[in-house]
Design a protein around this nucleic acid. Structure first.
Lengths: 111, 111
DNA sequence: CCTTAATGTATTTTTTAAAAGTCATAATCA
DNA sequence: TGATTATGACTTTTAAAAAATACATTAAGG
């Protein structure tokens, strides 16, 4: 009996499918073949196919790289905005203790 | 001599880093340890570590699954909105030819 | 039509992700 | 300060991604 493969929540699968479809749509709008996109991305056509099929196990970097090549803006943000977002996240992170200690009091989910 | 590893654009690396940081921040806000998040995600701590380090080769599904567990909304959209987006994308896709033919005329990048 | 090539599907091989585990370090709290 | 344990860093193993390849199908254009 084969070990059951990893499962993903519907929410995750849905989000992946959106990204995959965005990519396929953008590729066709650019009038690039799968092989052409593969070459530009430095990947194989097999991989492009996995991506457009929405394979969850395919690397995040490959998805993002392909999306970027096609001009799809991740986070609906340009590079400058992303820098700002990163900065804000880093600041918030710096305000939190470097470790989580389970001993300490209750969870304070104020967000 | 080791074959040079895959490279990623700065734009891609930047976007990955943002997601990775969002995840680490959210984990700490939830007061979950790496091990705890790993267990909830059905993954190993090694993998959680790769994710929070922003490893580009780690699977998209793992990133999204962990993000979802932590309440991070992908695409700044709830499930209903994602369904709408998917529908719109499918419609646009249906309007395009099922194949790209390089013979045909110029690219018409009207987007 | 007829030809061409883009895509769907599948298989095999190679590379590498992910798991599993160990150990040192040091942050946190009693 | 002392005990606890979360985290950082590494190694080894194993499961699977990604590449490479082949072939059938069929959309698209001449």
């Amino acid at each position: 009996m084969a070990k059951t493969a990893r499962t993903y929540s519907n929410r995750t699968l849905q989000a992946i499918r959106v990204l995959a479809t965005q990519i396929q749509l953008a590729r066709k709008q650019h009038r690039w073949t799968e092989a052409e996109l593969a070459e530009r991305a430095g990947a194989s056509r097999s991989t492009i196919r996995m991506i457009e099929d929405g394979n969850p196990a395919t690397g995040l970097g490959l998805y993002f790289e392909v999306a970027t090549l096609l001009g799809i803006s991740l986070y609906d943000a340009d590079s400058q905005k992303l820098t700002d977002i990163q900065h804000t996240l880093d600041l918030k992170l710096a305000l939190l203790p470097s470790r989580i200690d389970k001993h300490r009091g209750e969870v304070f989910d104020d967000f």
